[in-house]
Design a protein around this nucleic acid. Structure first.
Lengths: 221, 221, 221, 221
DNA sequence: CATGAATGAGGCTTCATTCAT
DNA sequence: CATGAATGAAGCCTCATTCAT
């Protein structure tokens, strides 16, 4: 039946073929993120991408390869991109902006899915994990690390190990992204806005010098 | 073949039957932790428990039920247990001890697996997640929250939201447990001892009052 | 192996896909009939339908559902269809024709299988059983019952309960269908032609008035 | 717990060991009858017999052998026994008694199960089927056949083939036993008493001479 | 290019059978 | 004798992958 009649798409133009791989990758992030690699079904990815199961194999040799491309082509660039959102201002201001920009960036339903992917499934693919660390973590270390280094140098921040501090800052941020996505947590938790305020307060306190000077420095007025 | 050769069981002793459920649960934690629910194979769990596939079904009705029991009977008590390790001393001392005890506790190969389980698979079982939050998170909030509350009251700690701070502290701790388990991270990362020192330093700075007094207090000399 | 040798499909034509469900249902009747539900293997049904095991699941959600559809889509219509084969003639003639048509209809290897199915396995599915009674038994009661009623009214048949007599007639017929299919019975039994003659004779005698002349002998007032 | 306390049986005496096989056979009839061979579970048979699964294997080498013994030791004697219940009286009286005794005999919940067993599962065991035919059917043919023969000789019954008539009579009887056991049938059916009355009436009419008065009416010339 | 019907390997689950106690 | 824990073969079912159209 469907073979004799043309498919019911808009007759004027077809989605550009070069769009297909991206549609599939986008659908794949969602499904992999929700179910994990093993439980993700190509059927569902295909359905969400609006293509048939067979079409996926025109662009990706296997489910595992599809996952690899999701990480490489979508997740790494996506997570890496926000790392650049640090422009002018003091180190403290830049750090706060870093936290708030990321929080805002991750405050969507899919965000926790991405994180789950890299935190939970990546370790099964050591090469991918290495790739991710090289591309994203190293970048973080550099970008945010530079901010910290300058802050330390200028006395805005206390003496600390910039590389280690980057991990500490991101740990606070990312774990709360995960937690905010859990329905159980949501019930008992504060609003997202309240949460990020708490994170900013916590992190800045952790980074600032113990005694700025003679006078107390009230935070979060 | 098996009829002609004697079974290869240890002739010296037989495993006590009442041990079976626990053996299976222990094997299941490991396998679930390594592969996730979907990719975990009962065959492997059985092999690791030293029993046959069918034996699992003498004690657990299904793979999913096995997972539920792993969470209920093993993980929740295990994770909850360490929450009690807070005894005398100042608030600051208690918090530091809390961090170090947990770090030591989680510093084994399986620990990251457990965390992966609760952080990544639990959300598929809302009732279990609720159970976990009630049993473990609520406990943390109470135990560690009380320490924070007393620290705030005594002036040892700055004004802060105890419940929110508990999350922040645990976020730093747990995310580093996960990260420490990744081979890629290990390559570039500091030693565990260095890491926990950094965590303690970071957290305590975040919690202490802004300006202790006139004099500067250099940290991490 | 299968990759190096060409598949052994008939090169001349491919089975039409829209035929698949029916092929499977036909194979399923045979296998269910021979072995019963529990002992029937999907592997065998698939083989007999000329498809693979997985294909069955493209059309039927489970083995039990396949059985249900066998009953609904194939057996009930098939058994019900022959009920209509009653046309003109006296009541006696119609009954005889009813018996001989059914006998002829059931005189094939599969027939006993169908009967075994409905007589032996249906009671495990009360809803199906009700469905079968509504669709087939009620039909019999009506069609054959009407013949009997007219025969009674016209004096061709003796006074009797039409509904009950339908059961009695069918009992004789169906049980002999079952018996004829057993190899052991075959050895000792008469030929099919002889058997149906005996059935016709027996039934007609049972239905005819006692005393064509003289005194009436009302039975079952 | 149960291992430390003696089982709760009568302390004075234990069931005689020689009772065990019979208990198991009785339980097996019930379970085989309800579920068929393939779907019958030894676990259930053991439970109903009040023994453990392993005990069955002390007396029967396998499930199939257990079924064989059920047929041989229990069903065949049980079904055969009632064949003897024919004593004095006219042929008509004997036949009526035969029908009513069997009807009464089969008017218990298990009866339909037995019949289902021999009618539906026996054909998978040709040797058993042969055995059953030799032991039960041949007996019927002889016992009931003799009654018919004498009835024919005495003119009480019309000219008919005694062997074939035995089948016809039993067909009516047995099929109604099966039908009476179905819940769906029960809803719409007459009471058992009514049913057997109808059967008796039907059968006797079928067997009696055509024309009690004047002219003979040869059938099946 | 795209489809989706078809495949079959592989995993979960059941249960007849065994065997150490 | 009796038990019931343990086994593992076998069956149902899923789903990644293929391929004719």
């Amino acid at each position: 039946m469907s073979s004799s009649t043309p498919p019911t798409h808009d007759p004027k133009w077809r989605r550009l073929p070069e769009e297909r791989p991206r549609q599939i990758l986008e659908a794949a992030i969602a499904v992999f993120g929700e179910h994990g690699i093993a439980a993700a079904k190509l059927e569902e990815i295909a359905a969400r991408a609006g293509v048939s199961k067979g079409t996926i194999y025109l662009y990706f040799p296997s489910k595992e390869d599809l996952f690899r491309e999701v990480i490489r082509q979508v997740l790494v660039p996506r997570i890496a991109q926000v790392e650049h959102e640090l422009t002018g201002g003091t180190a403290i201001e830049q750090i706060e902006r870093y936290l708030r920009v990321h929080w805002h960036y991750f405050d969507r339903p899919e965000a926790a899915s991405w994180l789950r992917l890299v935190l939970f499934e990546l370790h099964k693919f050591p090469d991918l994990e290495q790739f991710y660390y090289d591309e994203v973590i190293a970048l973080s270390n550099r970008v945010l690390g530079d901010v910290l280094r300058r802050g330390v140098a200028s006395g805005e921040l206390r003496q600390l190990d910039p590389a280690a501090s980057v991990s500490l800052i991101k740990a606070v941020l990312l774990m709360h992204v995960i937690w905010m996505s859990s329905p159980a947590a949501k019930a008992s938790a504060r609003a997202p806005q309240h949460t990020i305020d708490g994170i900013v307060d916590f992190v800045l306190h952790a980074l600032r010098p113990d005694a700025p000077a003679g006078v107390a420095a009230p935070v979060l007025p």
